[in-house]
């Protein structure tokens, strides 16, 4: 499941929702991305996330579909927020559930690596010294490369 929303999410409630009534799950991994109060030494007072409504949902569903093809997941959830956020607030949540831990760990990393390089979100930082669009990191492309050649959406 994927969700794109402006409001915050409750990590505990989301995990409970995913596992409610299920006894086949043996491992649950969560990743939460949050807003930092500094960027390259400069203070960040607020962050705003812009996205491409329609394509965002499509890309997140495609990425989640690929994770489900590669690992035996029993459940997965990706929530990504947009709009203005303060330091300390949640941005993104990934939950993966499987019978054994390895699949859940790997799938969560895969989902985040793909999300960071293909989901159409853009961060803008506001602060005294900063104040601008965040540049994409080369390290994100490197992280993606370890999962092998990307399957095109059309395939």
């Amino acid at each position: 499941m994927i969700r794109v929303q402006q409001r915050d999410f409750d990590i505990g409630a989301e995990i409970e929702g995913l596992r409610a009534g299920r006894t086949d799950i043996g491992a649950i991994v969560t990743f939460t991305g949050t807003v930092r109060d500094s960027a390259m030494g400069a203070r960040v007072s607020q962050m705003t996330l812009e996205h491409y409504p329609g394509m965002t949902e499509k890309e997140l569903e495609r990425i989640e579909g690929q994770a489900c093809e590669r690992w035996p997941l029993q459940a997965s959830l990706v929530i990504h927020r947009y709009g203005p956020m303060q330091p300390g607030e949640n941005i993104v949540l990934v939950i993966t559930a499987s019978a054994h831990r390895q699949a859940a760990f790997e799938a969560a990393e895969f989902l985040m690596d793909y999300l960071k390089t293909s989901a159409p979100f853009w961060k803008k930082e506001d602060g005294a010294e900063t104040g601008g669009w965040v540049d994409a990191r080369e390290s994100d492309d490197t992280a993606l490369a370890r999962w092998g050649p990307e399957k095109k959406a059309a395939e």
Binding site: H80, F121, A136
Partner: peptide
Amino acid sequence: IAFFPPVTGG
């Protein structure tokens, strides 16, 4: 058709 900078979500 959409145009945008490299994405920076997550």
